[in-house]
Simulated scan of single mutants.
Amino acid sequence: MFRIILLGVLAALFFSSTFVLNRAMSLEGGHWVWSASLRYFWMLAMLLGWLAATGKARLARESVALYRSHWVFWTVAGSIGFGVFYALITFSSVFAPGWVVAATWQTTILATPLVLLGFGRRVPLKALALTALIFAGVVLVNIEQATQTGLREVLLGALPVLVAAFAYPLGNQLVWEARRGEKTYLPAIDHPAMDDPFCRVLLLTLGSLPLWFALILFTAPPLPSMGQLAQTAVVAACSGVIATSLFLVARHTASSTAELAAADCTQSMEVVFSLVGEALLLGHVMPGLLGWLGIGLTMGGLTLYITVQSRS
């Protein structure tokens, strides 16, 4: 159990780079469209390099062929699960500190069971009452933020994250359903690439590319600086490769639902790491009493929710 928790906490540490560096790039004048799209351009190169370096070059080529054969499905799933999700996360960083975005992002634990219900999957409902604690914590965090920046900034910082919290599990669930092949309105995709987590990430990344190109053409942002290029590469490596790998290892190591719940609970540490990272790197002040109470409710509610779910 200790190893699982340690791996999960390390994953949360690297995941938090997303929130801190997105905020840093925003404060430095970097356009949010580049902060979002460049991450996935970097990830595409890193994933292809990783698969080639680990002897899976053929599987990578087959993944690209699989994308071409089901390009409509992968474009929809990738645009929602990676594109809409991350575009809104980076947009929010323009208006809210990273730790506020990270805390609001925890509402994805509320969105996931609703997405599952939408696909006709059974969800244990007795734990859903605990999600009220998570939502209450998010509300308190944003109320404190409103007293410092104003209602408009809070709405522009929080509402996109709430939409992103639904987009991410929706995109991933589309892939899960296609892998199962039980929904007549989705293609049944039975291929070895669907069993490899990095290939699935590669396919979703490929699917998100049309959205990134469309956003770049539509917004016509000024060219990114060398600093923004470097920072998006760091985010891609830390969050897209290292954190994902650590978290997958943690969940793969788990041998019981309790251990799976422990791995999932560690991701609430993203809020703490984002808070500390912004204080150290960006000089942000710590939250007040209301903010700390909101963080406590969010993390406590998440922990209780996953614990109860694991016993269902």
Rank of each mutant, 00 (worst) to 15 (best):
L10V: 09
F15Q: 00
S17L: 11
R23V: 00
A24M: 14
L27S: 09
G30W: 00
S37F: 02
L44M: 15
A52V: 13
K56W: 09
S63R: 02
F73M: 05
S79F: 06
A87W: 00
L88I: 06
P97F: 07
W105N: 06
T108E: 10
V115A: 07
L116N: 13
R122I: 11
V123E: 05
K126C: 10
L128K: 03
A129Q: 09
T131V: 01
T131L: 04
A132N: 08
A136Q: 08
Q148K: 15
Q148S: 12
L155R: 13
L156S: 00
V163Q: 12
P169V: 10
G171K: 01
Q173S: 15
E177G: 01
Y185E: 13
A188G: 09
P192S: 13
M194L: 14
D195V: 11
P197E: 02
C199K: 01
R200K: 11
S208Q: 12
F213R: 15
F218S: 15
G240D: 04
I242F: 03
I242Y: 08
V249E: 14
T257D: 06
E259P: 03
A261C: 08
C265K: 03
E270C: 04
E278H: 10
A279E: 08
V285N: 07
G288C: 02
G294Y: 00
L297E: 08
L302I: 14
T303D: 11
T307E: 13
